[in-house]
């Protein structure tokens, strides 16, 4: 029964990774750039929750505030740092994103200091079913991620904006000719990605309450790995990759012999998968034209 607990924990962690990976993958699909600052938006969400929770004590208010702050921040970053570089080399955009990531981390450190903050979002206890006992927050995380993914899939499939997003990611030039406002779609994508990052920050704090300025760094890199495993640019791929990575991480932590090497194992999986399938599980193969 220990295995089932591990599996559920893994699914819940995987859900968090998937949520962050969705932000990476959607931005990559539509703006064709790797938003390395995405992990730090999670951190900003975490600090917003910390501040608002301290002021009001209401976790729902704190979550809403975090989502608003992250969306505003994500859109602002896009307008100031990435928009001037549209049409420039991908490497230039990537390096700017790394710069933004550093900027956010150091700003947070100036404002909040480097000491770790403990944030207890809500104490929900554990639930026991037979011999399996799981904390309620894990189940809430799992439920919310499933909900978010369903809503997002429906949004992309059935709304006008969602279809426009797909169109832009397939062929930006053609989409523009069809009357789609590409700049608006990119802004919306950044907004959605940042909102998901805020939620991921909340669930991450529910899982482990320590809040530091580098909170987003490791989950960010892992989620990025997940997005690449699933095939970057693909929405279901990000979900699949995130959940796979989360389950592997939790199982690996449970086996004492390999527990210290968990990070190495996760990254090795990435390298092996990319060697076998260079575009990830569900990534589209870009045909090279001469």
């Amino acid at each position: 029964m220990d295995f089932i607990t591990t599996l559920i924990n893994g699914l819940s962690l995987g859900g968090i990774y998937a949520m962050i990976a969705l932000g990476y993958t959607m931005v990559y699909g539509i703006a064709k750039m790797l938003n390395f600052a995405h992990g730090d938006i999670i951190m900003v969400g975490g600090y917003t929750i910390f501040v608002v929770l301290g002021l009001s004590g209401n976790p729902i208010l704190a979550t809403v505030a975090a989502i608003i702050v992250c969306v505003v921040l994500g859109v602002t970053i896009e307008k100031i740092a990435y928009k001037p570089l549209r049409g420039a080399s991908p490497l230039a955009v990537l390096i700017t994103a790394i710069g933004v990531s550093y900027l956010l981390q150091s700003l947070a450190q100036i404002i909040f200091g480097s000491a770790q903050k403990i944030v207890i979002v809500a104490d929900m206890g554990t639930v026991t079913l037979g011999s399996v006992s799981i904390s309620v927050s894990t189940l809430v995380t799992l439920g919310c991620t499933v909900l978010v993914m369903v809503v997002l899939t429906l949004f992309v499939k059935f709304t006008k904006t969602g279809r426009a997003m797909v169109a832009v990611s397939e062929d930006r030039g053609a989409a523009q000719l069809m009357g789609i406002n590409v700049n608006r779609i990119i802004t919306i994508t950044f907004a959605i990605g940042s909102a998901l990052a805020a939620l991921a920050g909340l669930f991450y704090l529910m899982k482990s309450p320590g809040l530091t300025t580098t909170l987003g760094a490791m989950p960010g890199i892992k989620a990025f790995t997940a997005a690449v495993i699933g095939g970057i640019g693909s929405v279901p791929g990000a979900m699949l990759g995130g959940i796979l990575l989360g389950v592997v991480e939790c199982i690996s932590y449970k086996i004492t012999a390999i527990a210290p090497y968990t990070d190495a194992i996760e990254f090795s999986i990435l390298i092996i998968i990319l060697l076998v399938k260079p575009t990830g599980f569900l990534g589209k193969k870009r045909r090279e034209k001469v």
Partner: peptide, 27 residues
Amino acid sequence: GDLAVLQNLVYALILIVIVIYNNSPAL
């Protein structure tokens, strides 16, 4: 102490400004 982080802040700003200046098609 906590001021040490100013250094990273300055680096980050320099990096962003230089890359945008050198690569922006508009400029």
